[in-house]
Design a protein around this nucleic acid. Sequence first.
DNA 1: TTAGGGTTAG
Length: 326
Amino acid sequence: MVQMGSPIDLFEANNLMSQLVKSKNLAQAHQLFEIMPQRDEVSWTTLIGGHINGSQPFEALALFSRMREEGTRIDEFVLSLILKACGTTNQLKQGESLHGFSVKTGFVNCVFVGSAILDMYTKTGCISKSRDVFHEMPQRNVVSWTAMMTGLVNSGHAKEALLYFSKMWASKIDVDSFTFATALKACADIDALLIGKEIHSQSIKLGFDLNSFVGNTLTTMYNKCGKLEYALRLFERMPIRDVVSWTTKIAGFTQKGCENEALQAFIQMRKVGVSPNEFTLAAVISAIAGLGSVHLGMQLHAHVMCHGPRHPLLTSVDGYHDVKPA
DNA sequence: TTAGGGTTAG
């Protein structure tokens, strides 16, 4: 359309850009954005959202300052997105300033913006501010509740998170797989086996136990509560076993001192074609350390050097590249 | 045509 010089309607161009973002064609979406004869807040929001979902929060923040320089209207859509970017990049100052803007403009009362503000505070380590925002929200939904619970769990307040879960349950809010995964992580953190079992049976009733996030957190919970056999049974029944499921199984064995079983699970995982990540390798290295086998350790070391993953945890160790495994 | 929350290691 551009090459042929046909005039592009703003709505059409936004629509096209949205399709490009959805099909992960971020570069083309950006190109289109730059040559659009006119842009509105939807154009900016679409591109900013594409960068955030494509793990480029700093680019999203840069676009947002351009958006402000051009005097484009800031609405609740772009506010939610930028608050999220502030959280993931730990920009508390900008997050606070956007919170102030939301109060002044009244967008703070929008449940999307309110949830995004409380999430921004939990990610920047201000849990008490999250609590304040949560309690001042005129309306809350499953996302607000879950974001609050997640913040509490991640700041070491698992017990309080479970309190919120029971309040949420009592207020008849529709819980979902996100809520269950968070509540189960809270149980795992404080060895709350009985509550965990209760939440497990509720998740079965609602069908969320088949969700891989819930299933993986359930096995972690049983492992941490010392119920390795439950975790193993659950693993067998999982419809999809991803890298997290396998890593949880390997770590479960390692933590119980069953290093050989851990290594067998790792071999099995490789056989069925699941690629390990840095978490898996850390768990396997721990198993090998437990066995005290220099030979196996060197084998794994070589494997990591040849196949990666090239993660800071594995590559930033001093002298790492000087070590020559057999 | 645009927006929010979740899992695994040490």
